[in-house]
Design a protein around this nucleic acid. Structure first.
Lengths: 471, 471
DNA sequence: AAATTTGTCTATTTACATTTC
DNA sequence: GGAAATGTAAATAGACAAATT
C-alpha cells in the first residue's frame, strides 16, 4: 500500500501507524487512553473526526468509532454529533481517603466531613446496644427475627421527608455510595446512558466510568436541571436513566423548587427514564419538599444515606424502590455485598426510633447555618449561597482558572475542590470552587481558610488564566 | 420475501418471525432470556446452531451470534465450538437472606452458619471498644491517624497462613463477597473470561453473571482443578483470570495439595492470568499450605474474609494484591463503597492482635471436627470427606436427581443444596448435595437432619430420576 | 485423518440523525 | 434553510479455529 500524504497533515491527535496492531480498535483506544491519562492530550482538546482518523490510519470508519466509544465510556472523552469529539475535564478524582494525610496540618474545605462532635451521641447508643442480651445475635449472618424493626425505622425516616414507603420496598446498603453501585449494577448495562447535571457528584462520575455507563450532561439554570434540555436529549439520544440530588445538589448547591420538580417529572415519565434520586441532603430541609419518589414512585430508586445526616462511620444507607425493581435490586445488593452489617443498622435504627437522630440533625442544621454565615462574611456577593448547606459553590472571577486556584490554595494549606472535579462533558468557561464549610475543625480554622481563599482570589482576579499565580 | 420451508423444521427452539423487531439481536436475546428464565427451555436443552437459526429467521449469522453471546454472558446458556449451545443449570441461586424465614422450624444444612456461640467473645471486645476514649473518632469518615495498626493486624493474620505481605498492599473490604465484587469490577471488563472449577461458589457465579463476566468451567479430579485442562482452555480461549479456593474449595471440599498448586501456578504464570485466590477457609488449616499469593504474588489478588473464621456479622475482609494492581483496586474499592466502617475493622483488628481470634478459630476447628464425625457416622463411605470443613459434599447414588433430593428434603424440614446450584456449564450425570454440618443449632438437630437425608437416599436410590420421590 | 459442524472475532457496509455553518 | 460535517447504531461479511464425526 502506498504511503499517502497524511504524514504532516495537521491533526490534533494521531497515532503512529507502525504502532497499529490488530485488533485495530484496541490499539487506537489504548493509545488514546494513554495520552489522555498522561496529559499528552489536555482537557477540551478537539480530537480528529472519526472519518479523518480512519482515512489517516487506513482503517474502516466503524473501527475508529469503536475505539472512540471505548474511551467515551471510560469518561476520557465526550462526543457531540455535528460538533466533534473532545477530551474530558480532569474529573477523575483521586482516592480522597488515600490523600487524606492527617500528619500534615491542612485546613479541610475539600471533602465534606459533617460535624463529628455529634458522634458522642452515637457512641452512647452503641455502648447500650452491646450491653443488651441479644447483642450476640446481631453478629450473625442472617438478620434476626425482628428485622422488621429496622425497616420500620427506615420507613419512619422517609416519612420525615414526605415519603410513604412500604417496608417491603426498602433495603439497607453499606452507605450511599454502595447504594449507587447497587443501583447502577442492577438496573443498567455498560453502554447505557444516564442524564446528570453538567456539574455533578464526582463519586457518581467515577462509579459510572468504572462501570462503563455513559453520563450525558444536561444544562442547568438557577433552579436546577432544565426540563427542555432534558427533553431535547431524550429525543435525540437513547437515555435510560437520570441522576438527581434535588434537596441540595452537589456541588451546585441548588434546592430544586416544586415547580421544577414537576416539570422534570413530566419528562422523566414521558420518556420512561429510571430516576436515581439521591436524597442524602434531605435532612437539611426536613418536610419542606416532596421528593420525586413520591411523585413518580414507579420510576424512582430513592437513596437516603445516613452518613451525612446521622453518622459517617457506620456506613448505612436506605434504598427505596417500586415493586417492579424489587427483584433486580435485591439480587444486585446480594451479589455485591451479601449483606450490610446488622450491628451498624441496629445503631442507626435505635438513633432514629429514640429520636436522638432528630436531635443530631437539628444541631447539624444549626452548626451549618453558623458556619455559612461566616462564609457570607467573606463572600457577601456570592451567587448560589445556601444557608443550610454543608458546602458552598463559589463562582470565580472570569479570569481565574479553578484548577490553579485549587493548587494555589493547597500551597497555603487549604484544601478546596475545583469545578473541574465535578464537570461532565463541555464545561462553561467561567468556573467555580466547592468549599466544604462544615469540615474545618472549628470556626477559627474556617475563618482562616476562607481568608486565605479570599486573598488568593483578590490578588489574582486580574491575571490571565494561564499565567503563574501569586501565592 | 417468500415464505420458506422452515415453518415446521424441527428446531429445539425457535422464535416466531413475526415477533422479530429491530434491533434483531435484542429481539432474539430477549425472547431466549424469557424462555430460559420461565422454564420453557429446560437446563441442558440443546439450542439450534447459530447458522440454522440465522437461516430460519433470515438474518445474518453475526446477528444471532450477538444474541447468543448476550445470553451467555448472563449465564443463561453456554456454548462449545463444534458441539453447540446448551441451556445452563439452575445455578441462579435465590437470595438466601430473603428465603431465610426463622419463623418456620427448619434444620439448616444449606447455608453455612459457622458456630455463632463464639460471638460472645466478639461482644465483649466490642463493649470494651466503645468504652475507649477514642471511640468517637472511629465513627468519622476518614481513617484515624493510627490506621496502620489495622493494616498491621491484617498482615499478622496473613502471616499465619504463610503469607508475607507489606501493609501497603492490603485493603479492607466490607466482607469477602464485597472483595470479590471489587476485584471483578476493577480488574475485568464485561465479556472477559475467568476459569473456575466446574462446581464453584454460587455467589461468585451470580456476581459474574451480574457483571457479564463469562465463567469457563474446568474439570476437576480429587486434588482440584486439572492443570492440563486449564492449559487446554488457555490455548483455545482468551482467558483473563482464574478463581480458586485452594484451602477448601466450596462446594467440592477439596484441599489442594502443594504439588497441584505448583502445577497450576505454572500454567497461570505462563498465560499471565489474574488469579483471584479466595482463602476464606485457610483458618481451618493454619500454616499447613503455601498460598498461591506466596508463589505467584505478582498475579494474585488474595482475599481473606473474616466472616467464616472470626465473626460473620461484622462483614470485614482483607484483600492483598501486587503493586501493579494497587491503583486499580483502591480505585474500585473507593467507587464501590467509599469505605469499610472503621468500627467493624477495629473490632476485628483487636480480636486478632489480642489473640482472641486464635481462640475462636481453635474452637471452631474443634466443633467442626465433632460435627463431621457425626456426619461420618451417617455416611461412612462418602467420598470427599473433609474432617475439618464446615460442610460436606455428598455424592448421590446414580439414579437420584439432586434437585429432587433437595426438595424432598425440604418437605421434611431439612434444607440442603443441590449440586445444580454450584454448576457452571455442562455437569456430570451423577450429582451431589452440599450439607453444611456446621449450621444446625446443635448436635441433636444435626443428627436429626442427617438421619432424614440418609433415609431419603436409601428409600429412593432405586428409583429413576424423574419419577416421584418417596417423602 | 479428513470433512463437517459449530462458535468466535473483528472489520466492513449501510443507513441514519443531528449539529454546524 | 440546505449542504456539509460529524457521530451512532446495527446488520453483514469473511476469515478463523476448535470440536465432532
Amino acid at each position: 500500500m502506498p504511503m499517502n500524504s497524511f504524514d504532516d497533515y495537521p491533526m490534533s491527535w494521531k497515532l503512529d501507524r507502525r504502532r497499529l496492531a490488530r485488533p485495530y480498535y484496541r490499539s487506537i483506544a489504548d493509545a488514546m487512553e494513554h495520552d489522555v491519562i498522561n496529559g499528552v492530550l489536555e482537557p477540551n482538546t478537539k480530537l480528529p473526526p472519526q472519518r479523518e482518523l480512519a482515512d489517516f490510519l487506513d482503517v474502516n470508519l466503524s473501527t475508529v468509532t469503536r475505539a472512540y466509544k471505548t474511551c467515551e465510556l471510560k469518561g476520557l472523552i465526550y462526543a457531540t454529533i455535528g460538533k466533534g469529539t473532545y477530551v474530558s475535564s480532569k474529573n477523575r478524582s483521586e482516592n480522597v481517603l488515600l490523600q487524606n494525610d492527617k500528619t500534615t496540618k491542612i485546613i479541610e474545605l475539600g471533602t465534606i466531613q459533617p460535624f463529628y462532635q455529634l458522634n458522642s451521641i452515637v457512641v452512647k447508643t452503641a455502648q447500650k446496644l452491646f450491653e443488651k442480651p441479644y447483642a450476640m445475635n446481631l453478629l450473625e449472618y442472617v438478620q434476626p427475627l425482628d428485622s422488621t424493626k429496622y425497616l420500620e425505622s427506615a420507613r419512619l425516616w422517609f416519612e420525615k421527608f414526605n415519603l410513604e414507603i412500604s417496608t417491603d420496598n426498602i433495603i439497607f446498603t453499606s452507605g450511599g455510595q454502595n447504594a449507587l453501585s447497587i443501583a447502577l449494577i442492577s438496573l443498567f448495562q455498560p453502554g447505557d446512558k444516564i442524564a446528570v447535571d453538567c456539574y455533578t457528584y464526582p463519586n457518581f462520575i467515577g462509579l459510572a466510568n468504572l462501570l462503563r455507563i455513559q453520563l450525558i450532561p444536561i444544562q442547568l439554570d438557577d433552579w436546577g436541571m432544565l426540563p427542555e434540555e432534558l427533553e431535547r436529549n431524550c429525543r435525540t439520544t437513547n437515555l435510560k436513566g437520570i441522576y438527581l440530588m434535588p434537596s441540595c445538589s452537589n456541588p451546585t448547591n441548588l434546592t430544586m423548587p416544586m415547580e421544577r420538580r414537576k416539570q422534570l417529572a413530566t419528562v422523566i415519565k414521558r420518556y420512561d427514564l429510571i430516576l436515581i434520586e439521591d436524597d442524602t441532603y434531605s435532612f437539611l430541609l426536613p418536610g419542606l419538599y416532596l421528593p420525586f419518589a413520591a411523585q413518580i414512585p414507579d420510576q424512582t430508586v430513592y437513596i437516603c444515606g445516613t452518613s451525612k445526616s446521622i453518622c459517617a462511620g457506620l456506613r448505612v444507607a436506605f434504598m427505596a424502590f417500586p415493586d417492579r425493581m424489587s427483584a433486580l435490586l435485591s439480587n444486585g445488593a446480594y451479589y455485591a455485598n451479601l449483606k450490610t452489617p446488622t450491628v451498624n443498622i441496629e445503631i442507626i435504627a435505635e438513633l432514629i426510633t429514640s429520636g436522638l437522630a432528630d436531635q443530631i440533625i437539628e444541631k447539624k442544621i444549626q452548626l451549618a447555618k453558623e458556619r455559612n454565615s461566616i462564609y457570607k462574611k467573606y463572600f457577601p456577593d456570592a451567587d448560589h449561597f445556601n444557608e443550610i448547606s454543608l458546602f458552598q459553590w463559589l463562582a470565580l472571577p472570569g479570569d481565574i482558572d479553578s484548577l490553579q486556584a485549587e493548587s494555589a490554595s493547597k500551597k497555603q494549606g487549604v484544601r478546596i475542590l475545583s469545578s473541574q472535579k465535578f464537570a461532565v462533558g463541555a464545561t462553561d468557561k467561567y468556573s467555580h470552587v466547592r468549599l466544604a464549610t462544615c469540615s474545618p475543625k472549628n470556626v477559627e480554622e474556617l475563618e482562616k481558610g476562607l481568608g486565605i481563599i479570599r486573598k488568593i482570589i483578590d490578588e489574582n482576579s486580574h491575571i490571565a488564566a494561564k499565567s503563574e499565580f501569586i501565592v
